[in-house]
Design a protein around this nucleic acid. Sequence first.
DNA 1: ATTGGTTCCTGCTGGC
DNA 2: TGCCAGCAGGAACCAA
Length: 286
Amino acid sequence: MPELPEVETICRGLAAAMANRRLVRVETRRRDLRRPLPDKFAERLTGRAVVAIGRRAKYILIRLKQDKREDGEEDDVLLVHLGMSGRMTVAASEIAPAPHAAHDHVVFHLDDGAVVRFNDARRFGSMALACAAGLERHPLLAGLGPEPLDPDFDGPALAARLRGKRTPIKAALLDQRVVAGLGNIYVCEALFRAGISPRRMAATVQGERARRLAAAIGDVLNEAIAAGGSTLRDHVRPNGELGYFQHHFAVYGREGERCADCRCRAAIKRIVQSGRSTFFCPQRQR
DNA sequence: ATTGGTTCCTGCTGGC
DNA sequence: TGCCAGCAGGAACCAA
């Protein structure tokens, strides 16, 4: 479900609830997520304080206060990936806590009584524990491409990542090793804004085209974050509010509608690329 | 080494 | 109204 803007929105909501709070209890109601939860998962988290919430690509990074254990290891970052249907929700302290819903797989109880739930119907999500030192070298993060909202992500940086790629630009942008954090929706939207056909060979997106595409990616992501992400079916912010960027899609899910470009008005087309729907305007995108 | 296809899982929708 | 095929925001894994 969630792409970079949804994950970023969720991180901000979690930060408000979890930063500087302690985990007093961790329930693992189902361990068989995409990958099984690590051994002694709850034990390793219980009693520890949350220092900060961050994000890398589509991973939520929950930083925990240093806690040296007997064997010398310091597991101090909890990595959460939401897969397709994962949610993180926060319920403030209540006299009678709400009963757990179906698919609440991991439940964190904070020292102020708040309850943070990881809910994931499809169980494509996962959690892992990592050391803060050398976090970027963790196997789950090591191969990731640049963050598209970093100031140094620009046309030349994108062009360099695409050089020599003999795959359609759509597929290249979905590859987290090329750019981190994009998914099916925002790739479609960014390509539309940049006027680039999803079928164009990635290696030919250089120079001015790469500059336009890098700018389009940054713009669409920033606008989506400002709107709280896109709610199609699953995405909910930790506080229960919905995102509303879906109302601003130019092409995603709009097969057959007229192109938003007033000079164009061609019909939006849907094709399948590497097994996934691509929406685009065949007139405007070349 | 790349690249494309398949698979994991559940829930919802649209067509019959 | 009811049933079921097909599809969904991801990415690891496999084979060529």
